[in-house]
Design a binder for these strands. Structure first.
Lengths: 212, 212
DNA sequence: CCTACCGATCGGTAGG
DNA sequence: CCTACCGATCGGTAGG
């Protein structure tokens, strides 16, 4: 591959959605990218700064010219993607559409976040426990807010008789857990195409809600 | 909800307890119990033997009179509960019942394992990655076998027109992931009773499968 | 089950 | 971005 295309790829992968597409990946971006992959694979506590440095191609001490601490890396990974989820939910809430279509759209969004930004998404859902204060409290507060907004959409769908009366909390939990479970599929040999996975999972989760 | 689930329940209860109920908890049992709780809460790599020793009430060095290594503790926790799941599936496969009832029964079994043996179940699903060889390979092989047997039951239900044609792999993944997601509920303030959680989750997951 | 201690490795800093 | 190095902590052992 050419130098140009690999640059573009780095940006797209590291930022997920390139806010500033012209700027190429900085060393810090590379560190975050490698860290995300290693944190997902081995977990945050089991990843040493020396492991990370080796995968970046520099000495461990040199990492500290780009980041302040190991914790800071985790914070940046987690809050960057959490923020993108929040922003998406903001815009979803503003759309005019039935509750069931909103939920389907939300399921698809999460599946695609999981698949397109696999390492970051996995780190967010698996490693947030290792955040230090005040980031830990900040994250759990954000998450509580997020799931309550999801539940509100489901609640409305039940009130409007669009959906079966399953506890909104259970529906939210089942949806988010199922998306998280795609990690298992992503790790194993993927005999099933991602679009097929997405459609079948959406079908299954929406079938359980639909009235007929 | 159905009569068959209470049959399977009996199996689970006897497995959840010690094989020799008269023998009281040994020091090793206490160590495994405390380790399971700490591994779930902080993860295996972030739990030190000194942390564990303190929670048991002895010095770190004394742990080694009862266990051989930190890894061995993880192995015992993981394989003990994995084995109970395998045994349950053996007996479930032998029952005469529709596929959909088998799946409902399996969902209930997993939910109850998760809730009744919370720490062990969470350690199995979250910390198995930290097993060392050959235990790691052993575990992934067992798990591959287990999920294939689950998929076979679902496959049969689809062939017999009991269930909608959702990919068995996706159904299996969604079910197991949803059960795992109950960790989130268990950790937070449980405003919803566990029986209600179970029934609603079973309803949601079975509704998505049922033909009508 | 304890005290005392081992070598290895951790996250991180100093100084260039 | 490197070499050199810090104090702290890790899993585990020796010996009683």
């Amino acid at each position: 591959m050419t130098a140009i295309s690999s640059n573009q790829l780095k940006i797209r992968v590291s930022l997920g959605m390139a806010k500033t597409p012209r700027k190429k990946a900085s060393k810090k971006d590379i560190i975050l990218l490698k860290a995300s992959a290693m944190f997902r694979e081995k977990g945050f506590p089991a990843t040493s700064m020396r492991d990370l440095a080796e995968s970046v191609g520099i000495e461990a001490a040199s990492l500290y010219n780009h980041i302040r601490s190991k914790s800071e890396i985790l914070q940046e990974i987690v809050f960057r993607i959490a923020n993108d989820c929040n922003i998406h939910l903001d815009s979803l809430e503003e759309t005019n559409s039935t509750s069931i279509k909103k939920i389907e759209s939300l399921i698809r969004f999460h599946i695609e976040m999981m698949l397109n930004r696999f390492d970051d998404y996995c780190v967010m859902v698996n490693e947030w426990i290792h955040l230090s204060e005040p980031y830990l409290t900040n994250f759990t507060t954000q998450r509580r807010n997020y799931v309550q907004r999801m539940e509100a959409i489901i609640e409305k769908g039940i009130l409007h008789k669009e959906m079966k009366p399953v506890l909104p909390y259970v529906v939210m939990l089942t949806i988010l857990s199922s998306v998280r479970g795609l990690e298992f599929w992503h790790r194993s040999e993927k005999r099933i195409p991602s679009k097929t996975m997405e459609d079948h999972m959406v079908n299954y989760l929406i079938n359980g809600l639909k009235k007929n």
